[in-house]
Amino acid sequence: MANKTIMLVCSAGMSTSLLVTKMQKAAEAKQLDAKIFAVAAAEADQALSENDVDVLLLGPQVRFMEGQFKEKLTPAGIPCAVIDMADYGMMNGEKVLAKAEQLMANN
């Protein structure tokens, strides 16, 4: 998988930035060429318009937004899912990266 873009959305973009760092380390360990970044929910639409996103993952704290993101992204063929609360809480970059890869592979 080369040059994939994974976007994470959370309420403020703070806690998710630590998860991004862990996901980047996991991607490097797998020799995966991936751009992984996090934005606050308020900036998500702008980030989507400025980036060619392959998958969007929502932090558990913004899971209520899943429906509206799927409405926007499904027609464009971009998978969207909520990050598992345990994986988010443990900041398990490997598992969250694996979920993103699985979503892209199934798309």
Rank of each mutant, 00 (worst) to 15 (best):
M14Q: 11
M14K: 00
M14W: 09
S15T: 15
T16M: 07
T16W: 04
S17L: 05
L18V: 14
V20I: 03
V20F: 11
V20C: 07
T21P: 04
T21S: 13
K22L: 01
Q24I: 08
K25D: 01
A26V: 07
A26Y: 05
A27W: 04
A27C: 01
E28A: 08
E28G: 05
E28Q: 09
E28C: 00
E28I: 00
E28F: 00
A29D: 09
K30M: 09
K30E: 15
K30F: 06
Q31D: 08
L32R: 05
D33L: 07
D33G: 03
A34W: 03
K35T: 07
K35L: 03
I36L: 02
F37V: 00
A40E: 04
A41Y: 12
A41L: 11
A41W: 09
A41V: 12
A41H: 14
A41G: 10
E43L: 11
E43A: 14
E43N: 15
A44V: 03
D45G: 08
D45M: 12
A47V: 03
A47K: 02
A47S: 11
L48A: 01
S49T: 08
S49A: 10
E50I: 01
N51A: 06
N51Q: 02
D54G: 00
D54F: 00
L57I: 07
L58S: 02
G59K: 08
P60S: 01
Q61H: 04
Q61P: 08
V62H: 02
V62F: 06
R63L: 10
E66H: 10
E66P: 05
G67D: 11
G67P: 13
Q68C: 02
F69S: 07
K70A: 14
K70V: 13
E71N: 15
E71R: 13
E71A: 15
E71H: 13
E71D: 15
K72W: 05
K72D: 11
K72F: 12
K72R: 14
K72E: 15
K72T: 14
L73I: 04
L73D: 09
L73Q: 09
T74L: 09
T74V: 14
P75D: 10
P75K: 09
A76T: 10
A76Q: 12
G77D: 07
I78M: 08
P79I: 00
C80A: 15
C80N: 06
A81L: 05
A81Q: 12
A81N: 14
V82M: 04
I83W: 08
I83A: 06
D84K: 11
D84S: 11
D84L: 08
D84I: 13
M85P: 11
A86P: 03
A86K: 14
D87N: 15
Y88R: 09
Y88M: 12
Y88C: 03
Y88T: 13
G89C: 10
M90I: 07
M90V: 07
N92Y: 12
N92R: 14
G93V: 13
E94M: 10
K95T: 14
K95L: 15
V96T: 14
L97E: 01
A98K: 13
A98I: 13
